[in-house]
Design a protein around this nucleic acid. Structure first.
Length: 462
RNA sequence: GUGAUCAUAGCUCAGUUGGUUAGAGCAUCAGAUUGUGGUUCUGAGGGUCGUGGGUUCGAGCCCCAUUGGUCACCCCA
């Protein structure tokens, strides 16, 4: 038997980590609930065909496929061999695999909406907190199993939904203490730009290229556009807007809008105008309610295929970590599953990256580590029986406590309390037992008081 | 999927051009100290050097493969 291990890109979470993660989950969940979203859960696996083709070419490659059972059954072997040839040719084959681990929460949600659209009350607002899996090569901030926390609204085209979702972003990150940039763009703007330079078919090429401006700079983007088949004339037309980002990074949103509207391309595409107006509305509304960390950014693209309207991406300031949240509007996601005309918009929180950011910036409050509030010392048989009954009284009052498992030295029992970050110890020894008292000690301050045992239950362990 | 880099005690790491029984700090356990901890002192346990091959008289060190971590690309939460 060799040493046990974990599959690449997966992790165990110890007690401390789980508590910190729960702090994030609880924060997000409470805000989702506050805004009227309802919980939903879907299976870890979906039928492969539900997922395929929804995330772009790259996305399809990263879907974890599940091998069918019973391939070695004599009656399946011939079919499996033929199917495997198909797989080797780079295609999927139902005789080999027909299920896969879910890749995100949005597509399974769309599948759910399509299956239940008759029963749902629209607009349907749901939130979902579950793991997803991607067969990516792991690196910083990238895992093969990670949690997403999504909130989506389907059945409404109102931009008010976008405003509300952005408000949720703002509020959650404020509660977590993370200073963030929320960048917004619209697929309409991107496709409008492609339309304006008469390259409608190259919209993805254009967006992928300009999305890299942070990394490779303006000249790099131009080169990338060139290799993706745009001629210099068209690149120059886009150039103004690419430079727009570089040179006016910190300009106000208002001046950015003016800049875009002045652009020669603006009048060439109704889609572009529509996109700009959408964003203008969203930002104006957000700013009106005091949210001022949303910036228009023409270079965010978002890789997922299904977005059609506003798109948004959240990054943390002060750390080198890619986006910790993202989302956008999709006009017809359920159409892929046979139910047309159900528009939606949603956001996602990447809990694992949020965790990494909070760890790096030391943003977790100290008290998330407190589980047990009171440790009863074990000082012998009759003493521990008295302690046990006192402890049960506290537990009835909802105070988490435990009795040290054996009669060990004081030193050892104190160290246990210290390690587990337990704020109070209660000492009932032979002297206290005789006097029917207990010593309550605050391990943080070292202060201690002696109380009659009967009064311990009414002590406030803060 | 492509490329780079790393892997030595529970943790963080030393380990010289390949040379005898592989070290330190922290942690753990025991004792100095049998009712008030986090200090100090003394001692102890713990590693077939990620795994599998190879070169060599001899490998923690060199070579190949493999697994895992990290980083970049691709892409993304």
């Amino acid at each position: 038997m060799s040493k046990p291990g974990l599959p690449q890109g997966t992790r165990d979470f110890g007690p401390d980590t789980v508590r910190k993660r729960n702090f994030i989950f609880n924060t997000i969940r409470s805000i989702f609930e506050l805004y009227g979203f309802q919980p939903l859960e879907t299976p870890a696996m979906e039928n492969l065909e539900t997922l395929m083709g929804k995330y772009g070419e790259e996305g399809d490659k990263l879907i974890f496929k599940i091998l069918n059972n019973g391939l070695n059954d004599p009656k399946n072997i011939e079919k499996a061999k033929a199917g495997f040839e198909n797989v080797l040719a780079g295609r999927n084959d139902k005789s080999i695999t027909e299920r896969a681990l879910k890749y995100d929460l949005t597509i399974p949600f769309a599948r759910y909406v399509a299956m239940n659209h008759g029963q749902l009350t629209y607009p349907f607002k749901r939130y979902q907190i579950q793991p997803v899996w991607r067969a990516d090569r792991p690196q910083r901030g990238r895992y093969r199993e990670f949690y997403q926390c999504d909130a989506d609204v389907v059945g409404s085209t109102a931009l008010l939904n976008e405003v509300e979702l952005l408000t949720i972003y703002s509020q959650v990150f404020q509660k977590l203490g993370i200073d963030v940039d929320i960048r917004i763009n619209s697929r309409k703007v991107l496709s409008g730009l492609a339309e304006a330079i008469e390259e409608t078919g190259r919209m993805m090429d254009i967006t992928i290229a300009i999305d890299k401006v942070d990394k490779i700079g303006v000249d790099g983007v131009k080169e990338e556009l060139r290799t993706r088949g745009l001629n210099d004339n068209k690149i120059d037309q886009l150039n103004g807007l690419i430079f727009f980002r570089e040179e006016n990074r910190n300009a106000s949103n208002l001046s950015k809008f003016e800049f875009i509207k002045k652009s020669a391309l603006y009048n060439k595409s109704a889609t572009l105008q529509e996109g700009v107006k959408d964003i203008e509305y969203i930002i104006t509304q957000c700013e009106a309610s005091g949210i001022n960390n949303i910036r228009i950014d023409l270079t965010i693209a978002r890789g997922l295929n299904y977005y059609t309207g506003a798109i948004v991406e959240v990054t943390a300031k002060g750390v080198t970590m890619s986006s910790i949240g993202g989302g956008g509007r999709y006009d017809d996601l359920t159409g892929l599953f046979g139910v047309p005309n159900v528009p939606g918009v949603g956001i996602s929180f990447g809990v694992d990256r949020i965790y990494d950011v909070m760890e790096e910036l030391k943003l977790f409050p100290k008290d998330v580590q407190v589980g047990t509030r009171v440790l009863f010392f074990n000082l012998g048989s009759p003493e521990s029986l008295a302690a046990y009954s006192c402890m049960q009284d506290l537990r009835k009052n909802n105070i988490a406590c435990e009795l040290f498992h054996e009669n060990s030295k004081f030193d050892k029992q104190f160290k246990y309390a210290e390690k587990k970050n337990i704020p109070y110890v209660i000492i009932i020894g032979s002297k206290e037992l005789a006097e029917k008292t207990a010593v309550i000690k605050d391990t943080r301050t070292g202060e201690q008081i002696t109380l009659p045992i009967a009064q311990v239950g009414s002590f406030s362990f803060l």
